[in-house]
Design a protein around this nucleic acid. Structure first.
Lengths: 111, 111
DNA sequence: ACACAATGCAAGTAATGACTTGCCTATTAA
DNA sequence: TTAATAGGCAAGTCATTACTTGCATTGTGT
């Protein structure tokens, strides 16, 4: 094995599963859902969903709060920003910069 | 299983492994390397590296060209941009907008 | 107190993934 | 042409992962 930043690895591993990405989407649509509410949209047992949520929580993509017997789930988008900086911006910045520069020039020229 | 976009899934799965991310980094540093050159930096057998590169190629993150008996590997950052649009911008845009708005206000105020 | 509702815990299984070993093919250079 | 170099193929192993089933716990409303 290589020596991965543990955080980064948890993050990418968390995003690697389509069901977990679906959970993130569900929370993006509507934050603060209970486990039960999330389960209604997932085609697996409650335990399966719980385990996926645990992975998301370990990756710091989801935070939870207990309210009585319920558990509320909240999306934390900050780690995604870290992915952006480390993996998107780094690889794409030159290309993106070229695009935005061009866009600016075009707007200047046409306006 | 959920119905994932096959492309998206290949992409995230490809990024989920630290050794594959290391390969992307190596290609980012210096594009067009042969398999052998990549192997020198990876702590596993050539076949292991080949298999990782196959995954990256399936995700369209790496393109290859044969030159004689060598195989050259090139990084394709475009899919990363797609991740950005679908998974970073979507989740972070409001937050980022808030930040840049605040920044602008602060600059206006202090300048 | 009671029944029900929401969630937690733990062990088991089946599939996938990472990696290896051993051998085969193709290209280059002497 | 032959030896060395660069890479390909396929099967096998071991660990991890996704998911399940069964039971235990904790909170809520009556």
């Amino acid at each position: 094995m290589v020596e991965p930043s543990e955080d980064t690895d948890l993050l990418f591993k968390a995003l690697a599963d389509p069901n977990r990405r679906k959970l993130l989407d569900l929370l993006h649509q509507h934050d603060g859902r209970t486990l039960g509410e999330l389960c209604e949209h997932m085609d697996m047992t409650r335990q399966g969903v719980t385990q996926h949520l645990d992975v998301l929580e370990a990756a710091n993509l989801v935070a939870t709060v207990r309210r009585g017997r319920e558990k509320l789930h909240f999306l934390n988008p900050v780690p995604l920003q870290e992915i952006y900086e480390r993996w998107i911006a780094k690889f794409e910045k030159p290309r993106l910069k070229a695009l935005t520069d061009m866009k600016r020039r075009l707007e200047k020229g046409n306006g």
